[in-house]
Design a protein around this nucleic acid. Structure first.
Lengths: 216, 216
DNA sequence: TGCCCGATGTTGACCACATGAACATTCCAG
DNA sequence: CTGGAATGTTCATGTGGTCAACATCGGGCA
């Protein structure tokens, strides 16, 4: 139960969640590298080591933030796609959906750079392995953002556009484009692009995606 | 003059360079976050603070490594393009060159993940501004990798493929695709892809780029 | 020739973090 | 009620970045 009373008790009551929120805040303005255990604890008003009762360490806290960020990204994509008007031509509708999803993707990256970077931050050294070494590498759940793109491309496929063999590859290609574009816009050389030109670049890239995945 | 003699003297003689090499080594296996001032100094056999005689701090050391990595990336692209056979049809030749450059790009990312990540690492907080605030933001030299892609696309344009207006945008789009692909392959969900499938994805993405930038 | 200053390194110190061990406080099930 | 499991706290250690004060070297000028 969430602590309603303001009175501080020895036991926080919902520390894990509170820490996650604080960590998400940190990531939101500052990206994954600013997700610092001590700072999160400080913000929640608790000693640094308290976090270890709920997380394996900074690594796990960060991984949690990462998951959260991935969800938010997918949400943004779905929101963008939901706002898209349908079309009589199913092929056109499918194409529009794909473009809308991509726009939602890049839009999220631009609006929430910190979270976006967190969504793709790379696990620290050696902490990459979570379970037993001998076991098959834990099959991580497919990121929803990718699922959305893939399904959109399958939607196009049903209408006969891309050939089935290349569908997954087409998804990866489309994802590559929006992901790369996002990062170039955030940290890369397209960073300082004025908003006008930025939109141009985004549109060009989306055009490349729709026309370029046609033949796959 | 490089210190030939093994005898350690109080003055190193070429510390700046030695530190850069050590830092590059660190980045090479471990990425930018492992570029640690103290460790670099340790490897060179010098006290940590000695580095401050040659660099503003870790930030500048890292920035130097970043530049180095960008050069290596461009080198890889040029090497790949150089190995490409010409073609009678100039349009075909131009297209081949573009694809070769892209292959060189992704190839470098896959072969040298640490360096590749270093080439695009984002400057730390607040250290982003190097000079006076009032001055126009220092116009960074265009990254050679991008120049190569842009020129390749201009090569295609001369042959009449993309329309001139979109040329820069086309370059950005192409770059986005290879950059995103590289990162997805390195850290992202395409990380554990078997080599076979990886090549498929690369080829699909390149196909998307060449066919998708045609209309820009 | 010899000395002095500036460039280059070194020591020591401080602060922020991650993390582990040992100890304290609660809370709840039996 | 009461004792152990949960949950926090304090203390301690190790790594890294960075600064100030001090040491050393090497070359140019009197």
């Amino acid at each position: 139960m969430a602590a309603i009373s303001g009175g501080k008790t020895y036991h926080h009551g919902d520390l894990r969640n509170a820490l996650i929120c604080a960590a998400v805040d940190l990531a939101t303005d500052g990206g994954p590298e600013r997700v610092v255990l001590r700072e999160a604890a400080r913000r929640v008003g608790v000693s640094p080591t308290a976090a270890y009762r709920h997380f394996d360490g900074r690594g796990e806290l960060l991984r949690t933030v990462k998951l959260h960020a991935q969800c938010r990204l997918a949400d943004s994509m779905e929101r963008a796609a939901a706002g898209e008007p349908g079309a009589d031509d199913p092929a056109l509708a499918a194409e529009r959906r794909l473009v809308a999803l991509c726009r939602g993707y890049v839009g999220f990256a631009v609006d929430e750079p910190g979270l976006y970077r967190a969504a793709f931050c790379v696990p620290r050294p050696a902490e990459a392995e979570e379970s037993v070494v001998g076991r098959a590498a834990a099959t991580e759940p497919e990121i929803r953002a990718f699922t959305l793109l893939r399904e959109a491309l399958e939607g196009l496929a049903k209408v006969g556009v891309p050939r089935p063999e290349g569908r997954t590859a087409a998804g990866a290609a489309a994802w590559s484009a929006v992901h790369g574009l996002s990062l170039l816009l955030l940290d890369g050389p397209l960073r300082r692009l004025p908003a006008q030109r930025r939109d141009d670049v985004v549109e060009s890239t989306l055009a490349m995606v729709v026309s370029g995945t046609r033949g796959l």
